[in-house]
């Protein structure tokens, strides 16, 4: 903590009496450096892999976005902002951005609201608590690919349970996934179903930290369940809500597994999302430069979310 104290000249005469103490500054310096080397050796394997597959590719992606895609004998050429100009004129990219915005605007609040309702239901006493909690959480355990298959079947025109229930009320069969008007919303249902139970866990954890004394005090005051929720629970679980919001936002951009099974971005790009478009450009059309440009957009969005989180959440000293 105070290395300067040891080499203070005024302590010299005293220290001179004991040889062990004169050696102290030198040894401390050596030990300190040994600790550095130890730390770097411990960190090296993880950090090398981290840089190799996260930081360097992110930087390389930005560089790639200023070059053209090498094709055949034609090598990559520097094209400046041409790829970005193409972005702005690409109707499918704009469609994907709009879709992703709608997708985020609906799935995030819906998942959070449902997660909170679920947590309130299974927090405390309830008949059949174990079963109910299991029912809420089970979709989270399934692979999203499997979930998508299950829902594709659920939506099946005529045969699927969805249409069968509509049939009871005399409504006609509809192709939910195959129509541009409903495809994106059909996909959103799947997202909400698969993630609400996961977010419930965070709320459950937060609800358990609310002191029992507050409940008792509220009961003495004669506060209703709703008042208690609005005045006590909701403000206290606010950090959790923010944390879940950030996670849900990231998920809204990074999780598109179900698109592969259900719609492939169609029909007519009605359910095209940004990451799926990156995949399509990068691995169907092999236009790697354009895919890199799209990835830059994606990284920018996630970085903004990250910075936002830093400012919103850091007051609670999450990273201390």
């Amino acid at each position: 903590m105070q290395p300067t104290a040891d080499i203070d000249p005024r302590t010299r005469p005293l220290a001179g009496a004991a040889p062990a103490e004169t050696a102290a500054p030198a040894r401390r310096g050596w030990r300190l450096r040994r600790e550095w080397v130890q730390a770097w050796l411990l960190l090296a394997p993880a950090l090398i892999l981290l840089f190799a597959f996260t930081h360097l590719p992110a930087i390389q992606t930005v560089i790639d976005s200023f070059w053209s895609t090498p094709r055949g004998r034609r090598p990559a050429a520097f094209v400046g902002l041409a790829n970005y100009a193409r972005l702005l004129e690409d109707p499918i990219f704009i469609r994907a951005m709009v879709n992703n915005a709608i997708y985020a605007a609906i799935t995030i609040p819906a998942s959070i609201a449902l997660a909170l309702v679920m947590a309130l239901f299974v927090h405390g006493r309830l008949f059949g608590l174990g079963f109910v909690r299991m029912a809420y959480f089970t979709p989270t355990v399934l692979p999203l690919i499997a979930v998508a298959n299950i829902w594709l079947f659920f939506y099946l025109p005529g045969i699927g349970l969805f249409d069968q229930i509509r049939g009871i009320f005399g409504l006609p069969a509809r192709n939910w996934v195959g129509q541009p008007a409903t495809a994106l919303y059909a996909v959103m249902m799947v997202t909400i179903w698969s993630q609400a139970g996961f977010f419930m866990i965070f709320y459950l954890a937060a609800l358990q930290t609310i002191p029992q004394s507050l409940r008792e005090a509220a009961a003495l005051e004669g506060a209703s369940r709703w008042t208690f929720f609005r005045r006590v629970t909701w403000p206290l679980i606010m950090p959790t809500t923010l944390f879940i919001s950030v996670n849900a936002t990231i998920n809204a951009f990074r999780t598109v597994d179900h698109i592969f099974v259900m719609t492939q971005g169609g029909p007519n790009n009605a359910s095209m999302l940004l990451l799926y478009y990156i995949y399509e450009q990068g691995f169907r059309f092999w236009d790697t430069a354009y895919a890199a440009t799209l990835t830059v957009v994606m990284v920018t969005i996630l970085a903004v979310v990250g910075i936002g989180q830093f400012f919103l959440l850091d007051r609670r000293t999450h990273y201390r």
Binding site: P57, D64, F283, A292, Y319
Partner: peptide
């Protein structure tokens, strides 16, 4: 600084850097 770089991976994860990682 290194810890901040580690935390960055919570936001920008390998899942979205598929094009570049494929090349690697």
């Amino acid at each position: 600084v290194l810890f901040a770089l580690v935390l960055m991976q919570l936001m920008v994860m390998p899942d979205i850097l598929i094009v570049r990682n494929y090349a690697t």
